[in-house]
């Protein structure tokens, strides 16, 4: 009986711990947003961060986008050819990418590459007392360190997702039209007929913006909140990747239901 009480207690403890962290994260979010307006006067900070968060993620995004697009071309063809509908390959590839795979896979890759790097960097700055030193120099580390990184992630994600989708469509083209014999004209014309600017592209962009906020927020919070030891930083980095991945997938479901559900 005691062990049941113990498990219940630890569950409650974990639950309240979760809310505690969520509360701290929300307060941090508020402080970051408060620091954003001042950032537009400080371009060099932003440029540096967009470089390390966005530009350095380009390689993995482009390569992944290409491969995902090619696989979509392959698998899509295999399935459609049974219905005699292989000319619609362009539609399958484009819609899958623009609506779902572009925003979601980019967010997951981003969380793994840029998110974990952000957490590690900030966590290490905390562990080596650099954040503390800044505070003692009367410089708010949230405005100087966290806000630029947050804005950079928020700004980079939609661009990366668009690049992923565009490269994927081209990948599907290479496989479908180049290798499998789908008609060139049919690939693009069917796609253009069925992919809607408002419904699909805009919604995809909105998704990637939402994911950008979530992933960067979690990455920055975990770094700032990390226990300032090497073990603490490594655990925080892991948490960033796991939590942002789960949050992205969960949010994707909610957004998809809202955007693409039956009207």
């Amino acid at each position: 009986m005691k062990s049941v009480m113990d498990s219940l207690q630890s569950l409650g403890h974990k639950g309240s711990g979760f809310f505690e962290r969520l509360g701290r994260a929300s307060i941090l979010f508020y402080h970051i947003l408060a620091g954003v307006p001042g950032l537009f006067l400080r371009y060099p900070l932003m440029i540096q961060q967009i470089y390390s968060v966005g530009v350095l993620s380009l390689l993995i995004i482009v390569v992944s986008g290409l491969f995902v697009g090619m696989v979509l071309g392959l698998q899509g063809y295999n399935t459609l050819v049974d219905f005699g509908a292989e000319e619609s390959l362009g539609v399958v590839v484009a819609l899958s990418l623009v609506r779902e795979l572009g925003p979601v896979v980019t967010a997951l890759l981003f969380a793994g590459r840029a998110g974990s790097a952000l957490t590690a960097e900030i966590g290490l700055m905390k562990a080596t007392e650099q954040l503390s030193a800044m505070e003692m120099m009367a410089i708010d580390p949230i405005r100087r360190v966290l806000a630029p990184r947050f804005l950079a992630g928020f700004f980079s994600m939609p661009l990366l997702a668009a690049i992923f989708s565009a490269v994927g469509v081209i990948g599907g083209y290479i496989v479908g039209v180049g290798l499998l014999g789908v008609d060139d004209g049919a690939y693009w014309s069917q796609m253009q007929a069925k992919v809607d600017l408002h419904e699909d592209i805009y919604n995809g962009v909105i998704k990637s913006i939402a994911f950008g906020v979530i992933v960067t927020w979690i990455a920055v919070f975990e770094g700032y909140d990390a226990v300032p030891t090497s073990e603490g930083v490594s655990r925080a980095t892991t948490r960033t990747v796991v939590h942002s991945s789960l949050a992205v997938l969960g949010t994707d479901f909610i957004l998809t239901a809202l955007m693409f559900g039956e009207h």
Partner: peptide, 8 residues
């Protein structure tokens, strides 16, 4: 590109 070539 997405807006022009892919969508309507």
């Amino acid at each position: 590109m997405l807006a022009m070539k892919v969508s309507n």
